[in-house]
Write a protein that binds this DNA or RNA. Structure first.
Lengths: 96, 96
DNA sequence: AAATTTGGTTTATATTATAAACTACTTTAT
DNA sequence: ATAAAGTAGTTTATAATATAAACCAAATTT
C-alpha cells in the first residue's frame, strides 16, 4: 500500500540539500546555507549524515586562506532521491 | 526557494493516515492500522495529534459490545494536505 | 591590537517517533 | 464458571532526530 520513506531523506533540510545538489554539479557550504536558509550548525550535521550515507561527497580545501567545503551528489544519492520521490507518490498519488 | 513542510504532516505515519482518510469518507482504528501497518500504540498517538490539529475528527462508539474509534478528515485537513503537497513540489520539482 | 566577520564544528536541548507495557473488556475453550 | 486468549485501544518509557546555541580557529576590518 504505502512504500517506506527513506528516513535519511525524509528530513526537510536534508531533502533541501539534496534538491540543490541535484541541480548544480557542486555547491559549497555557504551556498547551501543560503539556498536552504538553515543555520550553519544544523547544516553541518545534516551534511555529515548525507556523506556518511554515501549520498554526497564532501571535499575540504582552501579558497585563498579561507576554508571551503564543497559538496556534490553521488550516483547513489541520485538513486536514493528518485526512490524517495517514487515512495512519496504512494502517499500523494497523482497529485504531486 | 523551498516552501516549509508542515511538520504535522511530514511524518510517515500521519501522512499515511491522512492519505487513507482522503479517499474514504471515514475509517475506523482497525482499518487504519491495517492499511498503514502501524502498531496500535503509534497509531493512537498520531491520531491524537491529527485530531488536536483539527485535521481529522475522532468519534468513539460501540459496535455491539466492542469499542470503535472512527476517524474522518476535515476540510482543514484536506487543505493542509494540499498545501503540504504543494510545498513538497518545491523540493521535488516536476519529477513528482 | 582590539573588534568583527567568516567558515565552520561540537554540544546541549527540545521534539518526535516508536515500541513495550498496560488497561479494560469480550470471546472461546474447558 | 473460570481460565486462556483475543480485541481495541491508551499510557509510558526509550531511542532517534532536529535544531539552535555555544564554541573554535583563522582572517579581515577598524
Amino acid at each position: 500500500m504505502f512504500k517506506e520513506l527513506n528516513p535519511l531523506l525524509h528530513s526537510e533540510l536534508r531533502l533541501a540539500v539534496m534538491s540543490v545538489l541535484l541541480s548544480v554539479e557542486s555547491a559549497d557550504f555557504v551556498f547551501l546555507r543560503e539556498q536552504t536558509g538553515a543555520t550553519a550548525g544544523n547544516l553541518s550535521v545534516q551534511i555529515d549524515k548525507l556523506q556518511k550515507a554515501g549520498y554526497i561527497t564532501v571535499e575540504k580545501s582552501f579558497k585563498g586562506k579561507m576554508p571551503r567545503t564543497t559538496c556534490a551528489i553521488t550516483q547513489e544519492g541520485v538513486a536514493a532521491f528518485e526512490e524517495y520521490v517514487a515512495a512519496l507518490r504512494s502517499y500523494i498519488g497523482k497529485g504531486l
